[in-house]
């Protein structure tokens, strides 16, 4: 069975120019997809990757990254929707292109699947209720980008 996991990788200066990513494919047989990237020159680089492979290999790949000095944050564990604030209006579905936020056609509710989130940050501003948090590449899960 294959799984897909979206992670934020933070490369501090020490590891910024190390060739770690390609080994994910070569040694761990993972398919990766770059969803978003941001480089703050001479300070850090941020990358949002979708990792695809068997659960074992994804786990091993993530462990390898951490050992290589890359800070790895699971996106699904960090994006939050405040269900008290959310009114299920659907405005966020206009900007979410990964299907993490989508209309459930039976109930009309806005289903939220954090595992699909690519942390593009679009829904954070599109939500009129400010119900979504933690989904911006620069401010993900409390790991504030060094500016």
């Amino acid at each position: 069975m294959e799984i897909a996991k979206n992670v934020l990788l933070v490369f501090r200066t020490e590891v910024m120019y190390q060739p770690v990513i390609y080994r994910l494919a070569r040694e761990f047989d993972l398919v990766f997809n770059i969803l978003e990237a941001k480089i703050f020159p001479r300070r850090e680089g941020r990358l949002i990757l979708e990792l695809r492979g068997t659960p074992d290999r994804v786990g091993a790949g993530v462990a390898y990254l951490a050992k290589a000095g890359v800070e790895v944050t699971s996106i699904a564990d960090n994006i939050r929707r405040d269900d008290e604030r959310c009114v299920h209006c659907g405005a966020c579905t206009a900007v979410c292109r990964t299907g993490a936020l989508a209309v459930d056609r039976d109930t009309g509710e806005i289903a939220f699947v954090p595992e699909r989130c690519a942390a593009c940050g679009q829904c954070e501003t599109a939500c009129p209720m400010r119900a979504l948090a933690g989904v911006n590449i620069e401010r993900l899960g409390g790991v504030e980008a060094v500016r």
């Binding site: 009114v87 299920h88 209006c89 659907g90 405005a91 579905t93 109930t107 009309g108 509710e109």
Partner: peptide, 11 residues
């Protein structure tokens, strides 16, 4: 298409 008004709450 995306809705902007809440169907669940209208119901």
């Amino acid at each position: 298409t995306s809705p902007l008004s809440s169907l669940p709450r209208a119901r």
